[in-house]
Design a binder for these strands. Structure first.
Lengths: 340, 340
DNA sequence: CGGTTTTCCCGAAACGTTTCGGAAAACATA
DNA sequence: TATGTTTTCCGAAACGTTTCGGGAAAACCG
């Protein structure tokens, strides 16, 4: 492998000047810079990431740490995350790598070790918990990171998030405006922070609309078809008054809900109205539902670029203000809601 | 982060001796070694991978490079690979990282760059082509690697593979022995090396059994349910004589074949016999088919350990002989084959 | 023409580790 | 006592890069 020394020797320059030329420093002659870059390309030079990291603290590698879990093979969304972030960081000349933890392994020691060996410049955190220990840990360790979502009261770290509170409010308020009063909410796994935040929006909308908050209508779980189906059947099988509308945390849940309602002999939107939030996962189009599904839409794939932006910025030491970004969503009314 | 210097100062030793103690070299007093290791643990020391790599050429990181493709989210098998290899290398104190290439990106420059930056000690190669340029490239570059499968005539590299030729022979021969003569083979994507090798086993079995080789009965494609279904319908819809039995490259294909045969009003095994090779992917049990499926079985998950063994060995410079391993498979007869 | 600035360059140090070549001390051998 | 041998240790060099502090030459200014 060609090194700076090789290039320097070939051009009769100092190693210093070659390095400065390649890194576009100011005090190098334009003509020299071009000559250096040309020979570097010709000699197929790639800077040794270890050497660079050792002295400058930058290796150009960032990582994502994820737990391994039983049905990871089935998880469609996960590969989207990896593919999206890979592409984004590649485009910035950085390397994105995935590190998978053992199933019940504690995350903190894993980060500890990765930080200790000092190979990575920063981390992307996904699925933050309500009070996520990883955030405190990385902050204390002084490592750059960006969170997909937000967690905790004091938010003094880079993040990209969408307005989950308002989005849940909008979906619920839309149903209230159409005359619904008993509105169920199929939410995600309880300790995720976005789940808590969406719950707040749901409750605020109910209060604002003068509707009663009925705890048995608010359900938590993995947001897939199976849970949509079983939760729907559960909602309509007890003694408690049944909902007239259902808010779904994502479109997979909604698909399960449609199946469940069909199994129960209930029609959408005649008997029950359904709305959902749409992450626009591939092969899952809310517009192709029958009847087509009313949603708030904010494509998950729109988040990779801001996330990469924020992390790259954090590594370069940009001020916090520029590293906190909120994505937008749109409300798309279709045919899954009826007036009551 | 604690460094060797910190430990050396704390114990009033030289950096050299601390390093040697931690790496279990011979010329360090047993008592010193213990003291060093204890304080290292206490100070939460992790060797800086960059510094280590720079001088010794080892960072303890190995990687897998995969192309990104459209339906990667649907690919159940892929996450199994990542999870399995991650676990294996973690257990050896090594880091396994995944690097995803852009969709149509050429693999060689990606390896070129990864080798140039010199962060990784070696690579795992999966899905080798019949003559795979990556193998030549990595060999020329002098980097350690291990191949899941084999490719080319001269096999002078570490690999783990199963006897794909014999396995296809066994499946086909089993059908021939039961009296079948027109046997279809739903194989994988044409340029994969295991696909070619399985074809050879299939043809050898046909020849040995005195059955004619009918090209229209040998189909190639992605090995999923959809192709199993469409290929089955294609096999039974032309003018050419229909097969009485089908060999499937994996169990997903077989599932599609079952669906296709049902759609055509044909029964298994009454009208058509079906056999397959079973990688034992999760949530896809050949024994739960109706009728239960006769297979050759060799669980994919059994390959991660030998693969990791071989790569770790190659990095340590072990001789080639010990780095070439063949996995076994078993023949499991069930209820999907009838005598003719 | 003396002084100041600008332009372009370089040597040397530093990052944290491994490893080479010794070297002091303790011990055994002749 | 002199001579090897083993045990245990250490200084210094090296890996390839970035960066600090300076410095020579040219250009500019009054």
């Amino acid at each position: 492998m060609a090194t700076l020394k090789d290039i320097a020797r070939a051009l009769d320059l100092s190693i210093t000047q070659v390095s400065r030329a390649l890194n576009d420093h100011s005090d190098v002659n334009e003509e020299t810079r071009l000559r250096v870059k040309a020979t570097a390309r010709a000699m197929n030079y790639h800077p040794n990431a270890s050497a660079r990291k050792l002295v400058s603290g930058r290796s150009g590698m960032v990582g994502l740490v994820v737990p391994q879990y039983r049905n990871i093979g089935q998880d469609r969304i996960f590969m989207e995350v990896v593919a999206g972030l890979s592409t984004q960081f590649s485009g910035r000349g950085m390397q994105f790598v995935l590190h998978m933890m053992a199933e019940q392994e504690n995350a903190l020691p894993v980060y500890q070790k990765l930080i200790g060996t000092a190979m990575l410049d920063g981390f992307v955190l996904i699925d933050p918990m309500e009070r996520d220990p990883r955030i405190d840990f990385l902050r204390k360790a002084g490592v750059s990171f960006v969170v997909h979502g937000r967690s905790g009261k004091v938010i003094d770290y880079p993040y990209f998030d969408i307005e989950n509170e308002q989005l849940a409010y909008d979906l619920t308020a839309h149903l209230i405006q159409r005359g619904h009063r008993r509105i169920a909410f199929l939410n995600g796994i309880a300790d995720r922070s976005y789940v808590t935040v969406r719950e707040q929006g749901y409750i605020r909308a109910l209060r604002d609309g003068g509707a009663e908050v009925l705890p048995h209508l608010h359900l938590h779980g993995v947001m897939d078809e199976a849970h949509g189906l079983t939760d729907t059947i559960r909602l309509f099988s007890g003694d408690a008054p049944c909902p007239t509308a259902i808010v779904c945390g994502n479109v997979r849940l909604a698909r399960g809900v449609y199946q469940g309602l069909e199994a129960l002999g209930l029609s959408v939107p005649g008997d029950v109205s359904v709305v959902a939030h749409d992450d626009e996962l591939p092969a899952l189009r809310a517009s192709a539902f029958f009847p087509s599904l009313t949603v708030t839409k904010s494509p998950l794939r729109d988040s990779w670029e801001p996330l990469a932006d924020c992390l790259a910025g954090a590594i370069e030491g940009k001020p916090l203000g520029t590293l906190q970004r909120l994505g937008s969503y749109s409300f798309i009314e279709r045919n899954s809601v009826a007036n009551l």
